[in-house]
Design a protein around this nucleic acid. Structure first.
Lengths: 342, 342
DNA sequence: CTGAAAGCGCTTACAG
DNA sequence: CTGAAAGCGCTTACAG
């Protein structure tokens, strides 16, 4: 912020021979202004390359005009479409976007609160990126918040948007059971306490139960929604000689890891073992074989969450819950559509 | 920003029985304060859950404490590590981060300037996301800017950070020529006017020249740094019956597209045609066959750019140019390391 | 349609 | 070490 003197509203006003109130009015369209006067203002603005200071505007108007997005991490294939949806919808709504990841909670002490009511008009919070205590605080001061992929603590009245995890997982596992006659389906679950992970596991259990397959808890292992973790898990399982005829990976990332481990061990997919993922990430169609998975409309989740947040900020009524449908995407890794290869 | 009344510095001061100046001093550590007094202030801050308004702070101090990142798009695998590097370094430096993509320049008229001197202390600008006119303006007011993957217009004196595109590409193509005896190497270039793309093409030409291979311009086609575009291009080439024994894809994204098209057409890779990419994106090790490519330290580019920008903002001297080395990553798609497969 | 003025909530010389 | 006060650059009643 060093540099040459920057024009202020007073300088523009002086140049256009009007009061600063009038400049403000033509810039914001907040009250009728004589057209000739407005034209003088506009030309002064252009000549001076005037840009109203956001901070002064915010202080006077009590609106930051920015939305905050809190994520546990910014990398990971999953966040790509989410970010795209959030960013474009935010921009279209005329807001600025601040992003912060909550990697490691700072040691020692005071939660830093990098994004909150002091610098945004509302917050989009992804699973696990904020402590319950802070969520309670935000809720208690009635600050606009929308949760992503996480049900809010009961009775907090915070709206959220997520996807149909449970039924999606169930349909996928049932496909394995009914079409491909799998009986011992390994499930690679996501991180502990992660809601998507828990619901997908429920869907898995639902499917087994619906087809009278008993649940073998030794078939539920950690995949961590993470390629490397999934690979390591499958490698170990193979060493242990666990018997299974299919793998339901908690997400597409872990599916890639599982695929690597299985192939490394000489297993054929899908002939020897069927494998399916979840999310339908962009790369899912390009693995070998192409991945059968469940399509999660992640970008749409981001867009809708922004829309809800903006409505909240504007004091409109908002649905407390928006759950996007998911859809089976049958490719080849389950054993369908098998094409002769060289 | 609706909601209950929020505590101000005056309320904290009153509760702690000090002046607002003292509250400010203990919060910012900007002057010595008696320890007992400071303790009273801290406890009042905690009791009231006081968060200083960023806008008021900015207005009074003339620092926004935020960095802006301007990108052409936020999706695309390439941007993942870049974002991660920028976000984490920004946070570590104690700044907030605003992100904006410049997808479609607004029709009609006035460039919106969503991120500039009115709401940030400095800008990180990725190739092609800002018009030259705006870059000139920022430079003329001496506003801190660091360019990513783009050489600034001559004599503007804007620092930039990028990678060794040309020599990286050259080494890669020379590998194809000397080790795998490729002679007709198709080059799938990136978007027009994109500096990374142009330099990689130069590297390609350098390699041919160094080995006395004549340049066949019919072997240079559009890949667009884009999977779908690359796939379409290769499909067309195959139809046209163009003769080639290797493909140098401008980036790993286009490599995936080329791979799909070639496999679809029954070509064996690398036995029939060698294929290489650029960037070493996260998925490069998991394609089939694993992709030989050039490692670009994209996350590091992001981190260093932030470091330079922060130095600039603080008025320190900064190198005008930081070029990260790239490194050959030999996997299997070029024909090396061939493992017997079933 | 227009202006004078108060006020948003902080930081920062200036005094003591 | 501490406080009173000016000032940052806007928006927004209030008057006219």
């Amino acid at each position: 912020m060093k540099s040459t003197i920057r024009p202020t509203i007073a300088i523009v006003a002086h140049k256009a021979e009007v009061s600063i109130a009038t400049v403000s009015r033509v810039l914001n369209g907040t009250a009728p202004v004589d057209e000739a006067t407005a034209a003088r203002v506009r030309s002064a603005v252009a000549d001076l390359n005037y840009l109203p200071q956001a901070a002064a505007r915010t202080l006077a108007s009590r609106r930051t005009n920015t939305l905050g997005l809190l994520l546990p991490e910014i990398s990971g294939f999953f966040f790509q479409p989410l970010l795209r949806g959030v960013e474009s919808a935010t921009s279209e709504a005329g807001y600025d976007l601040m992003v912060h990841t909550t990697h490691k909670p700072l040691p020692g002490g005071i939660p830093r609160r990098p994004l909150a009511e002091h610098n945004t008009d509302g917050l989009l919070i992804f699973t696990d990126s904020v402590r319950l205590r802070e969520l309670n605080r935000l809720s208690s001061i009635n600050f606009p918040v929308v949760l992503l992929h996480q049900t809010p603590p009961k009775a907090l009245g915070i709206p959220y948007v997520t996807i149909e995890n449970r039924s999606g997982a169930r349909k996928l596992v049932e496909h394995l059971i009914t079409i491909h006659h799998c009986r011992r389906i390994l499930f690679l679950r996501g991180p502990d306490g992660h809601e998507d992970s828990r619901l997908r596991e429920n869907g898995y259990r639902d499917a087994l139960k619906a087809h009278n397959l008993s649940l073998d808890s030794s078939l539920i292992k950690k995949g961590g929604f993470n390629r490397d973790e999934a690979r390591a898990t499958v490698e170990k399982i193979l060493l242990d000689g666990l018997d299974f005829d299919a793998v339901f990976c908690g997400d597409d990332d872990s599916a890639v890891g599982a695929l690597q481990a299985l192939r490394q061990a000489g297993k054929k997919i899908p002939e020897g073992i069927a494998l399916v993922g979840f999310d339908d990430q962009e790369f899912a169609s390009t693995t070998t074989p192409p991945l059968t998975t469940v399509r999660a409309p992640t970008e749409q989740v981001g867009r809708d969450a922004v829309r809800m947040l903006v409505n909240l900020i504007q004091g409109q009524n908002v649905a407390l819950r928006l759950v996007h449908p998911t859809e089976l995407v049958i490719r080849e890794s389950c054993g369908c559509n098998l094409v002769k290869r060289r």
